[in-house]
Design a protein around this nucleic acid. Structure first.
Lengths: 195, 195
DNA sequence: GTTGATATTGAACGATCGTTCAAGTTATAT
DNA sequence: ATATAACTTGAACGATCGTTCAATATCAAC
């Protein structure tokens, strides 16, 4: 059934995502990609056009997968805030991914790219906005279910949460203490509820 | 008085810091440095040994300058927490530095470097630890002056503050809204005091 | 089986990377 | 003035960068 000639685009993008995530955009060479994707340069360029374009697709897929993961954690949890907390646990302390991937790829991208790479920066910012929007949706649902006070400004809380998550994941790279991260996650939700 | 032959080491390191800060370690080539430092490769290598070593000195100086800035803001402020807040205002919203420098160079370095660059990573982590220690000192003084509750765990609060600052500066790169950042800084100090 | 379209291959391009070093320049001491 | 030490210069090295393209392999259609 599987087409042996034309590669599986999704699988290739997943592998590229992992590489870029671990090594950054600038730190990942086309030769790295050739090796890990098991593709020759001509094939990569025929399919994606350029390293920039491949990365743009990676960013887009990564953002979509974040949204999907948020939805998945919502379905599996007893309430919106619990689902949110499980998601945060997963991205900061989850162990299936390599250690280099504790940082959000989108934040890492914004941190790394110079101002000239306008298109890639915009792609990462756009993906982050979508995640923030999903946060807001979830928080709105939490407010409806009275997990948050009825006066909570969910848009503001979503921004706050996004900022917290960026800080948490950056801090995880500087001080790996698992127990401290757990405490901080608890603190984040405590401060979230008291607004 | 000034020696015309031997360059001013501090000035050179400051210029290198700015370059690395704006472009990252990997994104800054020796030729970039040669141009901005107005030094030829031989001179740079005679003085610093390698790009890695130059960067290690940059990291060290940057960390020390952070500590000095924290002290300076303490002296200029009416109280410890006000000085801390002014410092945070300065690093997230200060306009003398280029926009690319909103991120902490140390956090940016940890985000960018691959695991193989063990020495540089350790240098950045060490500098971050010193900053966190200074935070703790300041918070302890705030507790003595009853700006914090007598039961406040200042070591934990220092970690919390470090994490907040990383998040704030990362978020500043994704959503530049100045008013939102102001609000978030207020929120950080509100949550700080209520512990 | 032959044909035409489509996809893959890998050698090669010019540019740029971090780094080296022999030659040249400048300051100091006699 | 001259010798010595200290420092700077810039061409050049091999490696690697992102990318191209003519040659080759594989597919579907007749």
């Amino acid at each position: 059934m599987a087409n042996k000639v034309k590669f599986d685009r999704d699988e290739v993008i997943d592998k590229a995502t992992l590489l870029f995530w671990q090594q950054g955009f600038g730190g990942t060479s086309m030769r790295d990609l050739q090796q890990h994707l098991d593709m020759r340069p001509g094939s990569i360029y025929a399919s994606f056009g350029s390293k920039d374009n491949l990365f743009k697709e990676v960013i887009k897929c990564y953002g979509e997968q974040c949204l999907q993961a948020l939805d998945r954690f919502q379905l599996d949890a007893s309430g919106p805030l619990v689902g949110l907390k499980n998601f945060i646990h997963h991205v900061t302390l989850g162990e299936e991914e390599p250690a280099q991937c504790r940082l959000c790829l989108l934040a890492k991208t914004l941190s790394e790219l110079p101002a000239e790479q306008q298109e890639l920066i915009a792609a990462a910012q756009q993906a982050l906005l979508l995640v923030e929007g999903k946060f807001e949706q979830i928080l709105l649902r939490a407010r409806e279910l009275q997990e948050l006070s009825s006066g909570a400004d969910c848009q503001r809380l979503a921004k706050w949460l996004q900022m917290q998550l960026m800080g948490l994941r950056a801090y995880a790279k500087s001080q790996a203490g698992k127990a401290e991260l757990e405490m901080m996650i608890d603190d984040i939700f405590t401060s979230l509820k008291s607004r």
